[in-house]
């Protein structure tokens, strides 16, 4: 199995977008080597703007550029671009429904050693709460590349969440479709809806459970907003039990999005797995995933307990 970080796909896709459209411009806030927007700078130095360590101004400048017809992509760590710049994203980008693509890299606890100060655990909730904003949390390198390419065709603002750590490359498709979830594994006993790095973990957990006779349906909801209501409701009708899992607080993120759909359209018991209203801390990604229960064994156990409960 190949392992690559989703942030690398962001850089690759930006270069390809830049070749196709000379209205694509890229901004970063002194983290271009980490977010991988530097790849674009190498190819198109005149369309790359480093805005310094000033994320709020970077997003506002992106808005001003969008008002002139340019297609800005702005990136920083997820914690800074969605947190520090939140109010500018709200007023200057979302309120005007401007086509600005924001990329938050280094999301979740998989940031690792830098610790809780740098681990975005509420960025999905923040971005999801803003009218006009679309939220994409790709499951791997391939899907990130496709999502970034597709973002050029999406109207209005888009938030794409990427990760620092390498993770399995396993998604096989040719196109990312906003608002569409993919059933990656069919099952009858329980539905697990996941996004980001959690998707491959859930697939591994499903294989463990198969040996015990538990059939898990795995849904990749990389389009967190808009969310694919049809696929989620259809799966819930089949299995009658739904679990969500995300590398993010369980408040306001994917778990909330799925619960909101089911509450209205097909009330179902839902278990939300994620970060339970606490901050992250320093450690290796592997140690942190163990501590927070993001391993195939722990996930399998939680699924089993939920089915028995």
């Amino acid at each position: 199995m190949e392992f690559r970080a989703t942030r690398e796909a962001y850089g690759m896709a930006l270069v390809d977008l830049g070749k196709k459209d000379d209205r694509v411009v890229v901004l970063d806030a002194d983290l271009s080597g980490s977010t991988k927007s530097k790849e674009f700078q190498k190819q198109f130095p005149n369309r790359f703007f480093n805005m310094g360590i000033a994320e709020a101004n970077m997003t506002g400048v992106a808005a001003g550029m969008a008002l002139t017809g340019l297609k800005p992509y702005a990136s920083s760590f997820a914690v800074f671009i969605t947190g520090r710049a939140f109010e500018i994203i709200r007023q200057s980008i979302c309120y005007q429904n401007l086509h600005v693509v924001l990329c938050g890299s280094h999301s979740g606890i998989s940031v690792g050693e830098d610790g809780g100060s740098h681990q975005a655990i509420a960025d999905i909730s923040l971005m999801r709460s803003l009218p006009n904003m679309k939220v994409i949390v790709p499951a791997d390198y391939n899907e990130t590349y496709l999502a970034v390419l597709e973002s050029a065709n999406i109207e209005g603002p888009v938030y794409i969440r990427t990760s620092r750590a390498k993770s399995p490359v396993f998604i096989e498709k040719n196109k990312f479709e906003l608002g569409k979830a993919d059933v990656l594994r069919h099952g009858n006993n329980v539905t697990v809806v996941a996004c980001g790095m959690m998707v491959s973990l859930v697939l591994d957990a499903a294989k463990l459970l198969e040996k015990e006779g538990i059939s898990v349906e795995v849904v990749n909801a990389s389009s967190v907003k808009p969310i694919d209501r049809g696929t989620i409701v259809e799966s819930a009708k089949k299995t009658g039990r739904v679990i969500t899992i995300e590398e993010h607080t369980i408040i306001g993120g994917l778990g909330s999005a799925v619960s909101e759909v089911l509450m209205k359209e097909y009330p179902t018991r839902v278990l939300r797995i994620g970060i339970e209203d606490v901050f992250g801390e320093s450690g290796t990604k592997e140690d942190l995933f163990c501590k927070f229960g993001f391993t195939k064994e722990v996930i399998a156990k939680k699924i089993e307990e939920f089915l028995n409960g």
Binding site: V25, G60, V61, G64, T68
Partner: peptide
């Protein structure tokens, strides 16, 4: 030319417009 109101949002967009030129 730009939606404003929350203070500070206008100048940052203005810088973006000027840079876009």
């Amino acid at each position: 030319d730009a939606s404003t109101g929350s203070l500070g949002n206008g100048i940052t967009q203005a810088v973006g417009m000027a840079l876009a030129a």
